[in-house]
Every structure is written in structure tokens, then in C-alpha cells.
Design a protein around this nucleic acid. Structure first.
Lengths: 236, 236
DNA sequence: TAAATAAATGTAATTACAACACTTATTATA
DNA sequence: TATAATAAGTGTTGTAATTACATTTATTTA
């Protein structure tokens, strides 16, 4: 088999923008970089692609290294290739974003990495072009979640409508009418009402819901219409 | 500056899915590959990234090499990285899709490449994973054009409503009611009616329109709603 | 001058959406 | 034990958007 002799070869990395939701705020999981250059600075979790690995697998491996989680919602975001993005040697990076249930992570955290959750509105200075990656991931999350039911991935198995609404409101940085919101959510028929209530955050308590997994799996690519029109228009 | 000594480096290519519309069908521009392996087979236009080039520039360079065109609508599609996608040596490819006015290309074609337009519904067998790339690009084009006014990029400066409609109909593989279509298009206020008509395709002749370039530039990211609801639901 | 062809155009019924306020369940406290 | 405080839950109405649908018009050719 012939070889491409004269071309030059480049380091290829995968970086992960890991989103979580703690009930109040959308957050991103960052690590303190453990190799030079920029050692000790805040960074996305990432790593070089290995010889027999495609991007999806690389992303999944890197996510698992840090969080211990598998089978997580992940999606390729964008390939970043500015020639000077890594000052020590040209490296391209294929960025992925992941949506995880923040509570699952807490049990499985890999303490080899110094990892910390940061609210998306208070992200520290990041190495290289990682801030661009985060900005692009937030944009994509808004765009995608405006049309597709993916935000459930950020919630625990049982969640309440007020929790769900506050997640949407956080991502779109606005407030929705709860009657309209509830009607729209129910019209998707994706939720199954439970018998028990969450009494943590109110005296009356809010009913828990679970995803109807069958319908959910069949509707991941379906179109929702949760976001009121003027909002969609201004924010996407 | 420290180096990442132990990692392995990979060839990085950019491939372009170049869409054109001849008035009747959506087409893709393919070339006969001029190097081994797979020399002489049909392929997307592509090339290796050079040392001081980012992906956007690489894509633009490759598009210009073949078509002579600059300032064309281009968008990063996806990074493809299966370890065996190129049998001779591991190569990753960042795919871009471009929308060009097929008539502009005809004047500027670079005859160093044996290039040919193929209807998207009759694409020949392609090298490597290029068929996947084409499939993904078609999907993205449907998705994006369902919400954003990008299909104008495929049309000449002056075009008629029937032409525009047939473009939409081709991409969504369905037929629209022309009264509703016309109303929706006009409601965007993106078109300026010309005084002359296209008499080629009918006796009565259809009025030409041009884009209102100002409004168009301001609305590239705006949301349209051209595609009737049941269609969107079934096709995206 | 009649026939053929495709363009252009308007209306009415239906549906989707947004705006809006009160009642209910529960707990804590007076 | 009655009352106040808190957040959850729920329905209706007006408006805007969307769809379905048929006839007239301009032009060319036979």
C-alpha cells in the first residue's frame, strides 16, 4: 500500500465539554491540567487520540477516565485547528460535549484529576482555545435543546416539572410561564407521573416524573417546541 | 516550550462536499482521484492540511483549487476519524460542505481535475468513507435549510419563485402548495421583485427576484418556516 | 382565434400559541 | 388549632400562524 510520504503529520486530541445541572445552575466540569505547557491551569478534560481509536471512542474514553461514566449522551461539537492553538506543537482537537447527571458523577469521581464544577456563567480563564470551545458548546446546547428533548440527560431518573423548567430557564436565560411550559411538556407524552413527591423545595411538594424510556428513545430526533417564539428568536 | 514526545501524529485532510443546483436537481461535484491508493476512482475534492492553515482556510483553498471560486458559503460538517478509513495510512478528515452557484463554476472550472456533477440521487461508489460524508452533508443541508435561508446560495443572482420552490422540493423530496410557499417566502421580505421575467420555462414567464442583500446578511441566522409541519417532522 | 401551458393570486377554516390568576396542599408559627 | 406563608398545580380566551383549496392571467403556438 502506498504512503503519503511528503505530508506532515499532526497531533490529534479530543476535548470534552461536560455539562451538569445541580438543580439551580448549569455547570461545566473542568480539570487542572497535569502536563506542560500550562500545567496547573484550568482546562477541559482531554487527551490524545490513540492509534486504534476513532473520535467517538476517544471522547467516551476521556469522559470515562474522569467521571467513571459510560453510556452517556455525547455529541461531536466541532474540530478546532488553528495552527497556534497549542503553543508547544501543532495539535488539532475534536471537541465533544457530554450531558451527565451530576449526581451520578459524584459517586464515581476519579480523584487522580483535580476536577471541579463551574457555573457556565463563571468559567475561569482556560488554556488554549478552550474558552471558545465552551462558548460553542453552550451555543450548540441552546440550539439543539430548543428543538430536541436532550435536556433530560442532565436530570436524575426522577425529577419534577419545576426542576425541568428551571433547567430550561437557565439555559435560555429567561423565564417561562409555568402553565404553558407544563402543557407543552405534557403534550410530548414523554413523561410518566410518579406517585411520590419531592418535598425538599416546597411545602406542598412537586410530583416526580420519569421519562417514558420507549417514547424517549423513539423521539430523540423528534421536534419539540418548548421554547416560546420570541425567546427562540432572540437567543439562538 | 515542552513537546509531547510520546504521542503519535496523524495525517489531517479536508474534504469538501460541493453542492450545486442546475434548476432541476441537486448535484454534488466529484473528482477522479489522482493519487494512490484508489487512483482513478470517484472521490470528494480534498487535500491535506498545510502547516500554517486552519480548517476553514484549508477548505476554502481546496474549493478554490477545483472551482476557482472564493467567498463561497462553507460550513464545517464533521470530523471523520475511523482508524481504517484510509487503508494506506491513518488519516483523519474534516469535512466541509459548500453551496455554490453551479453556473459560476462552469466558467472557472479547473481542468487539471477531472470533475463532474452527479445528481445526489445517483452518486457513484466513492473512495474511503466519502459516501458517509455525502450522506451526512445531505442530512445537514436538509436540517439547516429547514430553518435558515441558505438555499439561495445555490441559485444565480436572479432567480424565479418556481425555481426556488423546485429547489426546496428537491431537497425535501416532496411537493409544496405554491400559494403557501410564495406567501411564506414573501413574508421573509428577503426578495426583491425584478421587472423582467424568465421566459425559458413557461410561456407566461415568471418574474425574476434578487436577494435583498442587506436583509439577507442580517438574517442568515434567523429562523424561517418554509417547510410545512408534517414534512419537517418526517424528513429531518 | 382557440388551445395549451405555467404563473399568479385570495379566502376561509383550523390549529397552535401566548397571555393571564386563582386554588390547593402543606408546613410553620402565632 | 387557626392563620400565614410558600410553591405547586391547573383552564380559558383571544390572537396569530398555518393549511387547504380553485380560478384567472399572460403568452405562445397550432
Amino acid at each position: 500500500m502506498p504512503k503519503y510520504q511528503k505530508q506532515f503529520r499532526i497531533l490529534v486530541a479530543v476535548d470534552c465539554i461536560i455539562f451538569g445541572f445541580d438543580g439551580a445552575e448549569l455547570k461545566i466540569l473542568l480539570v487542572k491540567r497535569d502536563l506542560e505547557p500550562e500545567k496547573g491551569k484550568w482546562s477541559l478534560m482531554g487527551g490524545f487520540i490513540t492509534e486504534r481509536e476513532n473520535f467517538d471512542r476517544g471522547g467516551a474514553r476521556i469522559l470515562k477516565q474522569l467521571t467513571g461514566l459510560e453510556g452517556v449522551y455525547m455529541e461531536q461539537l466541532h474540530a478546532f485547528g488553528h495552527p497556534d492553538r497549542d503553543p508547544s506543537e501543532r495539535t488539532i482537537s475534536v471537541a465533544y460535549f457530554a450531558l451527565i447527571d451530576i449526581h451520578k458523577f459524584e459517586n464515581q469521581i476519579n480523584s487522580n484529576y483535580h476536577a471541579e464544577w463551574f457555573p457556565v456563567k463563571k468559567i475561569p480563564k482556560l488554556i488554549f482555545d478552550h474558552s471558545n470551545m465552551v462558548a460553542k458548546a453552550r451555543e450548540r446546547l441552546r440550539y439543539k435543546s430548543a428543538f430536541h428533548p436532550i435536556l433530560f440527560e442532565l436530570l436524575p431518573e426522577k425529577f419534577t416539572l419545576p426542576q425541568l423548567q428551571s433547567l430550561y430557564e437557565g439555559i435560555f436565560d429567561t423565564e417561562f410561564d409555568k402553565r404553558n411550559f407544563s402543557r407543552k411538556i405534557h403534550s410530548t407524552k414523554l413523561l410518566v407521573k410518579q406517585k411520590d413527591k419531592d418535598k425538599e423545595s416546597s411545602k406542598k411538594g412537586a410530583y416526580y416524573y420519569k421519562l417514558d424510556k420507549r417514547r424517549y428513545a423513539a423521539n430523540l430526533h423528534a421536534f419539540l417546541n418548548i421554547i416560546p417564539n420570541p425567546v427562540i428568536f432572540n437567543r439562538l
